[in-house]
Design a protein around this nucleic acid. Structure first.
Lengths: 233, 233
DNA sequence: GATGCGGCTTGATCCCGATCAAGAAATTGC
DNA sequence: GCAATTTCTTGATCGGGATCAAGCCGCATC
């Protein structure tokens, strides 16, 4: 079930314009683009777009949580990325031959802004000074996927969980408290693990004194020790 | 050990210009770029660039074979891609923050053309009509990595080998005979498998009558049957 | 409080692919 | 041609994580 409305209030527009992709856009072009955008509400579990479906729009997540999921034979699925509030997603699909390469499903009841590709691409072609920003976006995704590939293909469950937790820490410093971006089963899928294994790894970390767990919020008393534990075990 | 020479003969220039990335380049800019390029010869096993190293150039493979390798803890390594003759590689690194995200090593004695980024980027910035081609290149790599991720995270050894073999077939039709692009150990690493497992899977396929193996050349009598075998088993 | 349900943990067992260990076959060197 | 080295195959065992199967906890509803 979905609903759409045609007017975006100015605070929403401001949030979208704050993304790196749009911050350099001339005001006129940006306003014209958002003319065509619509707000959509998604129920928990609702599918925003399917893998292989013709791609007509990309999205900005206002509220809730959306999972990008790659489907395999026999119902197997891997969460490629958990999209967070204020993230733009699927914009790179504009150059990927017109089909979504993954599925997007709401992990919670959510709200997204749907921005059609057609006017976006037209503006991009007419203002080529905007292209470097688009190249930068694509490069970030490339980088992200290369890292993912490394994690999946040569790290153990322990190492993957540890790296993931450390990545959640704000850069560098002490990260006493962090919180999981989604329910544990989704995080497990994001890491390519079953919920059971994920739970066991957290248990191991807890017993080793490297982690305190309370519901979805975690404390890492000594990040460096965690890093060392991952590198050795 | 390496040697460099400064003049590129015209047949080499023609091969490079035939790549999609350069086919739209104005003759003058292309010639100026290749002024700065150099030929390098690599011994078997020689490392062209290391992971994390500052990126100053990208490459065109004239002859031999180069493997892009991602390194993990404890000497573990995964071949991300096996570069073939007449492929351009590492050009996307221009936008990836100035460091190579993987290592490149010669899988055979090889010859590459080394093309520095500086003049390349300058030309790109001065001729923004060339950017769409660059976007297309990045998108292809994105697409490739998404596929890789899917294969690695949710397919069995059997399925990965079968998909890989089918991908080697020229599009669609009968592909009676194909040949592995590298020695079996390298192909196994590309698939995220040990040589032993790869050998066993080929053996299984042989016994099932789905494959004939002779050295490095393979015959697939019935591609559709192979596809079915992968989808079921 | 009882009941039910979804999310999480814990335990027992299984299976795929890695690892260890020989051999066989192909390639190279003399 | 024959030895030496590398590449590939085959077999035996091992182990990490999946799967199967209960139980547990927090929370909602009545």
């Amino acid at each position: 079930m979905m609903s759409a409305q045609s007017v975006l209030d100015s605070s929403i527009r401001a949030r979208i314009q704050r993304t790196p992709l749009f911050s350099a856009w001339p005001e006129g072009a940006f306003a014209a683009l958002l003319e065509q955008a619509r707000v959509r509400r998604l129920d928990l579990g609702e599918i925003l777009f399917h893998e292989g479906e013709e791609a007509r729009a990309f999205y900005f997540l206002l509220d809730g949580e959306v999972d990008l999921i790659s489907l395999g034979a026999g119902g197997r699925e891997k969460i490629v990325e958990i999209i967070q509030v204020d993230d733009l997603f699927a914009e790179a699909v504009a150059f990927l031959g017109g089909r979504y390469p993954v599925q997007a499903a709401a992990g919670l009841a959510s709200t997204v802004v749907e921005i059609p590709f057609a006017p976006f691409m037209t503006t991009l072609q007419g203002n080529q000074e905007l292209m470097p920003q688009m190249l930068a976006r694509l490069s970030m995704r490339l980088h992200y996927l290369i890292k993912e590939l490394r994690h999946l293909s040569m790290e153990s469950a322990n190492q993957r969980v540890a790296s993931y937790l450390l990545d959640l820490c704000p850069a560098g410093g002490e990260c006493v408290e962090i919180s999981l971006p989604a329910k544990k089963a989704a995080v497990a899928a994001r890491l390519g693990l079953t919920p059971e294994t994920f739970s066991r790894v957290l248990g191991r970390l807890r017993k080793a004194g490297l982690l305190r767990v309370d519901k979805r919020s975690l404390q890492i008393p000594d990040p460096q020790a965690l890093r060392r534990w991952a590198d050795s075990g």
